[in-house]
Design a protein around this nucleic acid. Structure first.
Lengths: 259, 259
DNA sequence: CTGATCTGCGTACGGCGTACTCAGAAGAGT
DNA sequence: ACTCTTCTGAGTACGCCGTACGCAGATCAG
């Protein structure tokens, strides 16, 4: 409390908001607004106009309400972002793993689902969360993955670490994709224009001889689609996990390296 | 130029700054400052006080100079960030791959090097780069990895995609680590205090029965160190690449899945 | 009806990035 | 040596931001 608020949320406050009862004392006037309304409006603004356009004033305007009224429902912007994260992580009702799916399918589905989520709400990866506060919906996703890794002979810690690895890959990949492709509209410069400005610079760099291997690459080496690249890396990662699972089942096997 | 600047840099301007000649016309007074000085000072501020404390006024104060003077050397904050990225990516002189290292060692070294870099300069992952502009140093890192993947029977496009996958994993992992561990000092709350506030909430969630598999996990399943977790995931990913390399060498082999 | 309590929100403060503007220093041309 | 062009340094100001504070009025307990 003594330090400046900065961008960081106060985790215990966010936890209360995420898990706490939504009771209300019956003394004053009825609230004309709800926390969910505010969170929904904020998500709409962030989706439509980007995270830079997300401000308390903007959200209030969206709801035709005074700016400071928001603070009756949300302690501050950081906590609002925490709530946005959890609301958007809601998988919807009845979203479980297909009954007969093997672990690899479950992991791949989860990875693709996360990717879709991040692409639909790019601000998820652009915001500096003070610290990931676990909300009910976030936790439900974790449960699904951990359950999908049950019964494979992995230790509990390995299951958790595999989950982290997959999440890291997805997060990092989509972050890259967003930086490259979404930024086009933010700068008002199309992808073609961007590469048109970069191309001569790169040509000169290649001609300099400082990057011999890069210069030898075929022209279209960087032209794989995002979707295709994502799948490729994901399958490599899952292949590696597969090797570990096989090793646990056939104890004679040795992995390419220990960890 | 017609649109608002926002957070996005103007890529052609950044490219000129990164690659362009540093010539100066000899007419006016000598510049009392240099772009490198500004970039260095900005990096110092970001490292010391965090990315939120990085402002043009702050950098100017660091250099005991008027705020607007910075704009004689750097078009704006976004471009300054681009320059910071490239300066910090300088691997130093004579940093090549060890001569006899196999590809796996080269990839692992590169991954660990990136990780160290990101941990040393967390703002690298917290800033929303408008778009990754390739600077000389960034490009040198790419060259190293692509060279390390030569001669393995992979296509050019596969080499690029493997590189992206490794970079995605590293980026995503360290981002997570930073969010969890670095945020402690920003909120002024220690790791213990944070978990102390989260623990009862999680206990109640586990007791609710909504997360059966999570509840069954051993208590210390999440307690693996960052370093250990990073290595584990990295080795899994490299195992997967290994499988692809092996498949290319023994054409009869089939991967766990195609991509 | 009274008093406590809660909501909505206007005002204001300090900080941000940066456009504009101008004084004055330094070299070029004569 | 003088002028003119050009460049640097920087103060001021504008429109954003998050949010602390305080007040008017609505609502309900007693």
């Amino acid at each position: 409390m003594s330090t400046e608020p900065g961008t960081a949320s106060y985790p215990s406050r966010s936890a209360e908001l995420l898990w706490g009862p939504r009771g209300r004392a019956g003394r004053g006037p009825r609230p004309g607004l709800s926390r969910d309304q505010i969170v929904t409006a904020a998500i709409a603004v962030a989706d439509r106009d980007g995270v830079d356009a997300l401000s308390m004033r903007r959200v209030a305007a969206e709801l035709r309400v005074g700016t400071m009224s928001l603070y009756r429902y949300v302690p501050g912007k950081a906590e609002l972002l925490d709530l946005m994260l959890d609301q958007v992580s809601d998988p919807g009702p009845g979203r479980g793993p297909a009954a007969g799916a093997d672990w690899r399918q479950v992991m791949a589905d989860h990875a693709r689902g996360s990717r879709d989520l991040y692409l639909a709400h790019p601000w998820l990866l652009q915001v500096n969360w003070c610290r990931p506060v676990f909300g009910p919906n976030t936790l439900a996703g974790v449960e699904l993955v951990i359950a999908g890794l049950a019964g494979l002979g992995l230790t509990d810690r390995e299951r958790v670490t595999v989950m982290i690895a997959i999440d890291s890959y997805v997060t990092g990949f989509v972050r890259n994709q967003i930086l490259y492709s979404r930024a086009a509209e933010e700068t008002g410069i199309s992808d073609e224009e961007f590469w048109a400005t970069q191309h001569p610079v790169l040509e000169r760099a290649m001609a300099s001889g400082d990057y011999p291997e890069l210069a030898k690459l075929a022209e279209d080496s960087f032209n794989a689609g995002w979707e295709e690249s994502f799948e490729f890396g994901l399958q490599r990662l899952l292949d590696g996990v597969q090797a570990l699972v096989d090793a646990r089942r056939r104890p004679g096997y040795r992995s390419g390296s220990t960890a």
